[in-house]
Structure formats: C-alpha cells, structure tokens
C-alpha cells in the first residue's frame, strides 16, 4: 500500500466523520427542548467537526506550511465557542428561556432570585428618597 492511498483514506474518514458531526449539531438544534441544551449541540460536535475537516484539508494539501494556519483557526474556535455559548446561555437563563420541568435541579435559581430581590429593594428605597427630595 503506498502512502498516498493511506493519506487519502484517512482524510476521507476524517471528512465523513466531520460532516457527520455537523449533522449531529443540526439534529441537536432541531430536537433539543430548550435553549441551553441546544447550546450543547451547537458547541461540542461543531468543534470536533471543524477539527476533523481541517485535519483532512491539511492532509490533502500535502504541504507542511498550511498546518500552522489550520491550527490557529482551530485554536481561535476553541477560544471563542465557549465564550459565545456562555453569553447566549447566560442571557437565556436571565430572560427565562428555559423549561424548569426539564431541570432535575437548579442551584442558580435561589441566588438569582436573592440578587433580584436585593436590586428591587434598593430600587424601592432609592425611589422613596427621590419622592422625599421632590417634596
């Protein structure tokens, strides 16, 4: 077996698996019930899918000089995907885009409610102060 055939076979497997991962992400977005479980589908298979496709690309180009740029592309993906997932998840939680009946436990709820009550109380006292100043 010559090396070319092996490289072609490996990159073929990588490409098919990578495409499968993107498909998994799409199925997840469609089938999961709420925003945060959809974010799981949008992060993990997507990162692996991109890794496999970039690796297949690197193997097919047959030159070492493309590997660093592919690595940089993937590293930036690793750095940005969790941040965007966190921002969307956080915004989704705060605007109550979730189904509490699908959570087996929620250790954040009490803390968020306490913070909201504190903010409301502060707003109320400040409001009263303003009223007195107005009189």
């Amino acid at each position: 077996m010559n090396p070319d055939t092996v490289i072609d076979a490996v990159s073929g497997v990588f490409m098919v698996t990578g495409a499968l991962m993107s498909l998994a992400a799409a199925i997840g977005l469609l089938r999961f019930p709420d925003l945060m479980s959809r974010m799981h589908a949008a992060t993990k298979p997507q990162v692996l899918g991109l890794f496999l496709l970039l690796a297949a690309l690197g193997l097919q180009m047959r030159t070492w000089s493309v590997w660093p740029v592919l690595l940089v592309a993937w590293l930036f993906q690793l750095l940005t995907v969790p941040v965007s997932a966190h921002m969307v998840g956080r915004a989704g939680y705060r605007t109550k885009h979730l189904h509490p009946e699908l959570l087996s436990s929620d250790e954040l709820e009490a803390i968020v409610q306490r913070a909201a009550q504190k903010a409301a109380r502060q707003a109320a006292t400040h409001g009263a102060d303003d009223d007195e100043a107005g009189r």
């Binding site: 499968l20 991962m21 998994a24 992400a25 199925i27 997840g28 089938r31 999961f32 019930p33 709420d34 945060m36 479980s37 799981h40 589908a41 993990k44 298979p45 990162v47 692996l48 899918g49 890794f51 939680y93 699908l102 959570l103 087996s104 436990s105 929620d106 250790e107 954040l108 709820e109 803390i111």
Partner: peptide
C-alpha cells in the same frame, strides 16, 4: 474528551431529543 462529548451529544440528539433532562449545578 472532546470526541467523547461530540458522540454523546449526537447520541442524545438522535435518541433522547426533546425528553433530555438537565440540571444547573454550582
């Protein structure tokens, strides 16, 4: 683990789908 995570999410997406149960843990 990234590989394992991807296959896990794929499995959950295809098999469980809308019935998946989650939790928020501190």
């Amino acid at each position: 683990k990234v590989v394992a995570a991807s296959f896990q999410v794929m499995y959950l997406a295809v098999v469980r789908g809308p019935d998946v149960v989650s939790a928020i843990v501190a």
